[in-house]
Computed example of a mutant assay.
Amino acid sequence: MTRTTESSQSVSNDEVRSFWDGNPVAAEGIAAEPGTPEFYARFDAIREDDDCEAYDYSDMIHGYSTSAGKRVLDVGCGNGYVLSRYAMHGAEVEGVDITPKAIELSRRRFELAGLEGSFQTTDGEKLPFPDNHFDIACSMGVLHHIEDPSPMVAEMYRVLKPGGKLIAMLYYRYSWKTIVIIRLKRLVHPKYRGKTQQQALNMNDGDDCPLALVYSKAEAKDLFSAFERHRFRLNQLSWKQLLLIPPLARLLKPVLPRSSDNFFARRLGWNLYIEAYKPLDTTSG
């Protein structure tokens, strides 16, 4: 499935690699040096904050606590957070990423935590694993940065065992952030004025991020059409984003439900989670 940006700009994997190698996920907002214990501690605290993705919600999505003995692949492993949670519960984990920096950070995280895991640099279009090898293949917040992720999805399908689970996260086309916040920024924020909607979306992950696509549920199902039993969930819409008045959100937060549990996040969240399965019978169709 090939997606084109609003401006019909072509974005190469080399551009994507260059940006993320120089801008590891969340590193800009963390004072500690990437690869230090302080960096991982701060990253994990931000990652597990309820305004992002509380740990119990992440466990519900991934099934860390029931993964003992399973083979798990993460395509676009970042600094190894997700795989470390699987490994802590006894899973056998493999991570791949397009950037050498991510592989370095993942290996360092595992070394510091005394965990076992294997990591390799690849763009994901040709995974270095045999057919029908993994019980779980995940890719969280990665595929929407690739202009055409279909070769990566095909490889994830290939290396999953029949009946194996796919877990992915994409940015949601009809999120509050897409339809309200990004458009407001284009009207009132000097940095965003004059930008197209696509250019403003790209800037979500850094001013120079080359690409950030958004998907509807139908588009996501089309991307993962080789799989079956698709299930979708939405999350990540903080009260600060929803109310648009940070002081009011801080005042009301003690009496409001958790961000990950509220009615609005489940319908207008930025993160679209997809769960699907490789068919047991892969000889037909």
Rank of each mutant, 00 (worst) to 15 (best):
D131Y: 03
E33M: 10
H62I: 06
A45K: 15
L252Y: 00
G90L: 10
I274C: 14
D205C: 03
P151W: 06
R42H: 09
N262S: 07
R250C: 10
K70Y: 10
V255A: 00
L187H: 00
P128D: 05
K253P: 04
A54I: 07
P149K: 06
T122N: 03
R193V: 14
L112M: 13
G194H: 01
K101L: 12
S18P: 05
A249E: 03
R266W: 12
A68C: 10
I146T: 01
R107V: 14
F263Y: 15
S225Q: 11
E92I: 15
L127S: 00
H189E: 11
H189G: 07
E48A: 11
P247W: 06
L166T: 00
L252R: 02
S18M: 12
Q120Y: 14
D44T: 15
E228Q: 06
A26F: 14
T178P: 00
R229I: 07
V72L: 01
K161V: 11
A31D: 06
L213W: 00
A54N: 07
Y86T: 01
F134G: 06
G22P: 00
P190G: 02
N262T: 08
Y86A: 00
Q198L: 09
G76C: 10
D208N: 14
E53D: 10
K221V: 12
L234S: 09
E94Q: 13
G78F: 08
P257V: 08
R250K: 12
V96Y: 11
P100S: 13
S7A: 12
R229E: 12
A32F: 13
D208I: 05
T283S: 14
R250M: 14
G269F: 11
N13W: 06
G164W: 04
S58C: 11
T121S: 10
R108L: 02
K195D: 05
I182E: 13
D135Q: 08
N235Y: 03
M140Y: 04
P190R: 04
N262C: 04
G141I: 10
L143F: 03
A137H: 05
N79W: 13
L105E: 08
F264P: 03
R231I: 08
E219H: 03
P24H: 05
H145L: 04
H89R: 11
L223Y: 08
A137V: 06
K185A: 04
R233Q: 14
H133T: 09
N79R: 13
M140L: 13
M60Q: 13
H133N: 09
D135F: 01
Y277L: 07
L170S: 00
R47Y: 15
Q199C: 08
L244E: 06
Y171I: 02
E155G: 07
S58T: 09
R266E: 13
Y86F: 15
